[in-house]
Design a protein around this nucleic acid. Structure first.
Lengths: 147, 147
DNA sequence: TGCAAATTTGGTATGGTGCCAAACTCCTGT
DNA sequence: ACAGGAGTTTGGCACCATACCAAATTTGCA
């Protein structure tokens, strides 16, 4: 994998990035502020932080959109969320419960661990909250020998 | 059970509390500073924070020791760590690996989830890094019907 | 074109973690 | 008995993440 450790972004930033990735087109400050129940200036600053780090592109007064790097990272974040949620559901948590708790934990789960759980689960296609996309080279087709 | 959510302490504070719980008798500032590789003043302040929150008792210039509350909470922290590590080992992580990764994640895992995983695992007695103590009323004897 | 809505900027705050230097306490050895 | 060194605490400062408000700025519609 291309150097994703899973700890590049703070939990909040990761949430914002996932949100931007979920939206089609550019995200307005107001939309993000509403989504996270914060003041618009807070949304601007958090998104600005992601832009400075190269995950988003900022068209001032227009909105924020994903860069290639942001898109790649967001795919990881979504996959991580779904793997963790699926794991929790295997321990008896109901789907929405698993999803909610996954949200709380996932920020601390490394890519390494996600890949291991993913492999151990047999590279599942579905989680409790959506399809799981397996990046080529990230987890599914890799691991030639062991595991 | 008694109102432990699992999110009472920041990850660092939780680590310090576990450390104090692991030591016999009072912990000196220097010991903690060495253990966490920080300046003595930092150790003082972090431990002071735990004391102010009621988890530790502070005998100035003498050391810090657990209060009843701290002891109870530390038991939860250790149990959480071991349950999470055991869970990870079930996904193919080697013992020390599971233990290391658990350390990174456990701060974000709620008591609720710990109890669920614990139950789902059949209230195991051993983890990859030590015995698992099941507080009466915390997890094992509870859950009368379901699960 | 002018004004309302949206956005950004700058100032400020809090909490957690960290450092250093200075002040203070403890204890041991002479 | 007490001086000095080791250990500890205090106060000041810094940084990052997150958050707010008020003021300034830009956009876009009427």
């Amino acid at each position: 994998m291309q150097g994703i450790s899973g700890h590049e972004l703070s939990p909040k930033r990761a949430e914002y990035l996932k949100y931007v990735a979920d939206c089609t087109g550019a995200v307005r400050t107001t939309e993000a502020a509403a989504r996270f129940a914060v003041a618009p200036s807070t949304a601007t600053k958090t998104l600005e932080g992601l832009a400075r780090a190269g995950y988003l592109e900022h068209a001032p007064y227009r909105g924020f959109s994903l860069t290639a790097k942001g898109e790649r990272y967001a795919r990881f974040l979504v996959r991580r969320h779904r793997i963790v949620a699926l794991m929790l559901s295997r321990f008896g948590l109901a789907p929405e419960e698993a999803c909610t708790e996954a949200q709380k934990m996932e920020g601390c789960v490394s890519r390494e661990v996600v890949d291991r759980i993913c492999a151990s689960l047999g590279h599942p296609m579905m989680s409790v909250c959506g399809r799981i996309e397996h990046d080529p080279g990230c987890c599914s087709p890799a691991e030639p020998g062991g595991e």
